[in-house]
Design a protein around this nucleic acid. Structure first.
Length: 220
DNA sequence: CACCAGGGTGGTT
DNA sequence: AACCACCATGGT
């Protein structure tokens, strides 16, 4: 099921090789900055952090919160995210760095990440998958929409079931990361650009925003 | 002008 | 457990 979706999406869009970042901590920062935000805007904030030379746990922790907020302004929710980034930076410092963290088993590391203010299930999984290369599937808005559409007209699986299903079938971090990246890519291409699924690799059982698909093209 | 983007939190019903 | 308001910028 998910393997076939992965293959179809690779065929259509090619390998994605996410996450675009130079190092694991940049991925962690990006995962917070992109929350409910277009990646373009998160990228502007990351660039500002790099230019200021503060894209490191210790430097981020030392910055004054107003100064950090000003730097990440383009990402939106900047005061909120400044606080979240500092709680994350402090967490990393307190844990003894990324090397120490990466020694933990996945389940424990996930639980630890979830104790950070502003890191929920999705952000934790993005960090686990892309920064720590653990075999987890990131259930985000795009994955949820696709899953709901595939199950239509039945109600889609819960987030937990979707995540578990993907992780059972696609065992490797590489495949799970690639599936998530491709679902996002696919969603960005077809979500608004097309009213329905013309040219879609998953035709006829795909579509985003089912409520926007004309009734005569809805799945029965 | 309205609507949306790779969520999470705290409070209310 | 299921809602809700809130957080805020930049693009279409």
């Amino acid at each position: 099921m998910y393997r076939e979706i992965l293959d179809a999406l690779i065929e259509q869009h090619g390998p994605q090789r996410w996450w675009p970042a130079e190092d694991p901590f940049e991925i962690m920062v990006g995962a917070v900055l992109v929350q409910r935000t277009a990646w373009r805007n998160a990228a502007l904030a990351i660039r500002a952090l790099k230019e200021a030379g503060v894209l490191r746990p210790d430097r981020l922790d030392d910055l004054r919160r107003e100064a950090l907020a000003a730097l990440i302004r383009p990402a939106g929710f900047f005061r909120l995210k400044a606080r979240r980034l500092q709680s994350m930076a402090r967490f990393v410092v307190a844990a003894g760095g990324l090397r120490a963290l990466s020694a933990q088993p996945t389940a424990g590391l996930r639980a630890a990440l979830l104790t950070i203010r502003g890191v929920g299930p999705e952000t934790a999984d993005a960090i686990l998958g892309y920064a720590f290369e653990r075999p987890v599937f990131v259930v985000d808005a795009y994955a949820r929409r696709l899953s709901a559409r595939l199950a239509h007209p039945a109600p889609g699986p819960s987030d937990a079931d979707l995540k578990a299903g993907c992780e059972r079938e696609l065992v490797s971090a590489r495949d799970l990361n690639e599936l998530h990246a491709l679902i996002v890519r696919h969603g960005q291409v077809y979500c608004r650009a097309m009213a329905a699924c013309d040219g879609c690799a998953l035709r006829p059982r795909c579509g985003y925003h089912p409520e926007r698909v004309p009734a005569e093209r809805q799945l029965s």
